[in-house]
Amino acid sequence: MDQVTNRVKTLYHEEHVMGTVVTFDVYPGEFSDEDLLRESIESAVTILHDADDVFSTWKSESPLSRLRRGEIELDQAPLVVREVLDLCEVARSLSNGWFDPWSIPGGVDPTGLVKGWAAQRALEELHRHAIDGAIVNAAGDVASFGGPNGSSKFRVGIVNPAKPQTLACIVQSPGAVATSGEYERGQHLYDPFARTLATRSASATVVGPKLGLADALATALVIGGRDVLGAIVELQGYEGLIIEPDGSMRMTPAFPLVR
């Protein structure tokens, strides 16, 4: 590591929620009211827990679980359920059907998008303040604004799926970096066309302005591979990367690789 390191002051918080860990890194810069930032982190954390309470398929009484069981109709569920399902509909269309929460056996499951969507909303609590930047990392899906100081953007490492203790590459974040793959939790991704658990790539990363959509597209990309890369090329502001099982990488032309 560089001997002359610019260690900037950051606030860090770790929250166990949604069955995983969500971390916050806040770069205050010249902003001095640390208590206010801590309050905003708390508000952000509440947003994550609220989303978990509504959407968790592990909580049998969550509105989503009840919807899946047919106990309630969509118009009896909290408004955010419709908001998320509408976003899923848009993502399904933009991904040419490779992201399809309605195809999964067991009922509609927007899990492939909810984490990113919730993390993005949580980040907005920090965006109220004139700080250099902030990062919300929800189990590997990363939402951010600004950068580590006033002049640069955040650099995000992408895990190497073949060697998860190392990186495959580094990207400059445009606001959202989402990665999907099965190397952490085993097979859990469903191919809506083959109608089976399957992925074509070892991992896939989508970057763009908004983490909810990036999350959905990354899920679609790891399942569909090169076919989905073609769909992402059409989406202004969103870029994709796939890492194949043999370690080769393919990406859209404007993918913001820095190393």
């Binding site: 069955g19 590997g140 490492g157 895990v159 990186l167 990207v171 952490e184």
Partner: peptide, 16 residues
């Protein structure tokens, strides 16, 4: 590497 965060496949609390 001079990075501030890492993106990878989703892990559980235990996996974190």
């Amino acid at each position: 590497a001079n990075i501030q965060s890492i993106s990878g496949a989703s892990y559980t609390s235990a996996g974190f």
